[in-house]
Nucleic acid binder design. Structure first.
Lengths: 241, 241
DNA sequence: GCCGATTTGTCCGTATGTATC
DNA sequence: CGATACATACGGACAAATCGG
């Protein structure tokens, strides 16, 4: 786990910003004064600040100072952003969740599935289809493929809770990186069977590949979301093109 | 612009990865050997590598090396990611674009518009509605609000090309940061009038706020995309929670 | 307009820790 | 065990942008 100084400073400043100690449009203390309050080098401060900048909390201004640009957003909607599991998002939004397992199988990746999922042909994986409820409304249809050698002892019981918790708590390996792709797709008959779509005839679809610390692909997932409860946040700097 | 060493190295490595000099799943040369090939300090190398890591090109593995995890993706779809203007994306995908101006006005932000756009009440802005064609298909409906004091000399002529080019080339100010929010919304009558939706009854909607180097909000934009041509990429590290 | 102080941006060399092989 | 490789941290130097007098 990160016992690094810069992550501690990052978390402390993040908390101060989120709780309004530093408010929107305020200026952060200068880097030099922060080195004194945290008793560390300027490089370490700058590392913490760059994390906050990347996440859209800060805006550094050359020669002037660093401005806080974090704003609270309406927590009414269910949102995803960063790598956050369904349960984490739901907990953050104080919602009740339930998961129903529709399919739980093992299979070997063939050519066709390889093209779809990115796993090498011959890979042995778990295939799990789950229906996610928020406050008893069926809203998300998840199709997961997990590499069996990465998550050897998966059970429907575990899958009905959080697979990510299981991976991080009970296994040595940890997730390191995730690539996602967001599109809008027409609803299939399968979607309509399980998800309460209302008037919509399409869904928000997030497909993702997850890699472990060794760069091995360990997961492919497609999540199909009811549009009303889907929201994706992103913040981007225009630089280094 | 940025003639920083680490950006040059970043661009060079990025190019080598995209052109296959370093292929998917290959190992990058070690940081120490890169300091020799680029004749710079290890810090500078690490800075370039961290950019590539953030963008999903590299996966560093403690004690082992750095693996390339960049994969070419199908360029058939129109995609957005990072801060990239419509024209940049289209050019990257070698498509013909045309822009039709539906509305070009000046107005003053009132309370209601302030809540929607994030501009302070009383702000004087341009309001522009544009319809974007790709290969003569009307696919994107853009509603832009630009702060007039930031882009004083806007004309319909300029708006029909790229406003971003105009800002970066002709004005001193430059865009620094953009926050975006992606949702799926039911199509309105206005949408259906202009966009070829086919069977879809909804669209992919991207709303964004853009800030200049001083942290002033200078733009609010809502882009409504035909689902077939919308794709949003993202890559995230699980760390520093 | 100039100058000096402040602040952020870039870069370096070095040292130490930790994981892998 | 030692060698290699990435991770963290420090202190110093200079550049570039800004601001006040």
């Amino acid at each position: 786990m990160p016992r690094a100084i810069f992550t501690d400073i990052y978390k402390d400043l993040k908390h101060k910003i989120e709780t309004g100690v530093y408010a929107y449009q305020d200026m952060l203390p200068s880097e030099n004064s922060l080195t004194e309050t945290y008793q560390c080098s300027r490089n370490t401060i700058r590392r913490a600040l760059s994390l906050l900048t990347d996440k859209g909390y800060l805006q550094p201004m050359h020669g002037k100072g660093v401005r806080i640009i974090y704003q609270h957003r309406d927590p009414a909607e269910f949102s995803i952003g960063g790598i956050e599991s369904f349960r984490e998002s739901a907990a953050r939004n104080k919602l009740n969740v339930r998961t129903q397992i529709l399919q739980f199988d093992t299979l070997v990746i063939d050519e066709k599935l390889s093209a779809k999922t990115g796993f090498a042909p011959g890979s042995e994986v778990w295939k799990i289809i789950r229906l996610r409820y928020l406050d008893e409304k069926p809203l998300i249809l998840d199709e997961n493929y997990f590499l069996q050698s990465f998550v050897p002892d998966l059970t429907p019981e575990i899958a009905s809770h959080s697979i990510y918790d299981h991976i991080e708590n009970n296994l040595h390996g940890s997730i390191a990186l995730s690539k996602r792709r967001m599109t809008v797709e027409k609803a299939t008959a399968f979607d309509e069977t399980y998800i309460e779509l209302g008037d919509y005839n399409c869904l928000a679809v997030v497909t993702s590949q997850t890699f472990d610390a060794d760069g091995r692909q360990v997961e492919y997932t497609q999540s199909r979301h009811q549009p009303d409860y889907f929201c994706f946040y992103d913040t981007a700097m225009r630089s280094h093109r």
